[in-house]
Amino acid sequence: MNLFLTILKWIGKILAGLIILLLISGLCFRLFGSKPVPPGKLVDVNGTQLHIRAEGKKNDLPTLVLEAGAGSNTDMMHWIAEGLKNNLRVIRYDREGKWFSESSKDSITPEFYANQLHQLLEKSGEKPPYILAGHSMGGPYNQIFRELYPNEVKGMVFLDSSHPEQWERLAQKELFSESQIVLVKTIAILADMGIVGAYNTIFKSEPENDGLPKKCHIRSHNLTAYTGKVFRRYIKENDINDKILFRAGQTKSLDSLPVLVFTATEQYKESQKEKYRSEGIDPDKQIEIWYKMQKELKELSTNGKQFIIDANHGSIITRKENAEIINKEILLMAASIK
């Protein structure tokens, strides 16, 4: 019994020592770590600093505005912007609270983001006409913008976009499950304490092999290590997701607006497929439903086109070869708009 208590005592001392070491490491990271620098510029919109990246010369073609997905950022659109900036004016930005943009203290409505983007474009000296291109949840955000400013939008591009009815028709019912939210909240606290940054400094991880340049991953790595804001924004996005989808779903027609829909072939990893099967859900049926919803996005307009790309939900834009397919069609659309 005495031996058992002695062992427990030493285990306690070791754990206490590790915790103290983590706290000291985190404090050192917060004191001496460098603050990540945004690649674009910050523009004040009603007291909120929003991050925007504007590239390419203004010309007679419409300006392309890129809208990232729920857990995404301007770097995810790297190859789209790189491939088009020599021909078009290309705008990337982070919604409030995301990545390098400050969190807004205003009350959030589904129309809030469209209005805020409109003000950001105006304050940055950008002028319509616009082509809106949205990846994942970026699609519904763009639908709301077009509904509010129809005369300024001359084309829309859906990049494996979310569908207003996806939670009703798919097995997944939200962006993040309760267990994922708990994990995200925990990581946010650790990031604020500097522990995530200290860990990343000591145990250097290899960038994800998704096709993006290493500098994009390093920037993301540094920002998520420096602050828990990014992770808390995931939770906020989860909270407002249903309202955004519902508001976007009020758009029943885009008339004859030029519309491009790009759909990825691979929607689920094998682990996700196995999880669905264990729950009695047929993943192949889920993919069929996704394809049907993608077709419905195309059919919002009498001038819609759909393209199937051999990719997953992320690599449809993060791999250069996929972005080149998308960029070719966007250029054709832009040239056709008078």
Rank of each mutant, 00 (worst) to 15 (best):
F231S: 13
N2M: 11
T265L: 09
K41P: 00
F203P: 08
T48C: 15
V45D: 11
I20L: 14
A16S: 15
Y268V: 02
Y93F: 05
C216A: 09
A188I: 12
R169H: 13
R92Y: 00
K214N: 13
S179R: 10
S301W: 05
R169G: 07
N238G: 01
T318R: 07
Y141D: 13
I326M: 04
L66F: 02
T302E: 15
K338L: 06
I316D: 09
Q250M: 11
N222G: 01
H118S: 04
F176N: 07
I281T: 00
P258I: 09
S315R: 15
P258W: 07
I24S: 10
G97K: 02
Q172W: 08
T186C: 11
T109M: 13
L66V: 04
K269P: 05
H163Q: 13
S161R: 03
E178I: 04
G155I: 02
E111F: 03
A311N: 04
I11V: 08
D282C: 06
E274H: 11
A225G: 06
Y93I: 00
T224P: 01
T251L: 15
I19M: 08
T265N: 10
I14D: 06
W167T: 12
T186K: 15
G83E: 12
A133P: 03
L21G: 10
K295E: 14
V43S: 01
G211Y: 04
H217A: 12
K204P: 07
H221T: 07
Q286E: 07
G280E: 10
R232F: 00
T201W: 03
L300P: 00
T63Y: 08
G56T: 01
Q250V: 01
E299F: 07
I181R: 15
E266Q: 13
L23C: 05
Q119T: 04
L66C: 07
A81D: 10
F231M: 14
H78Y: 15
L260P: 05
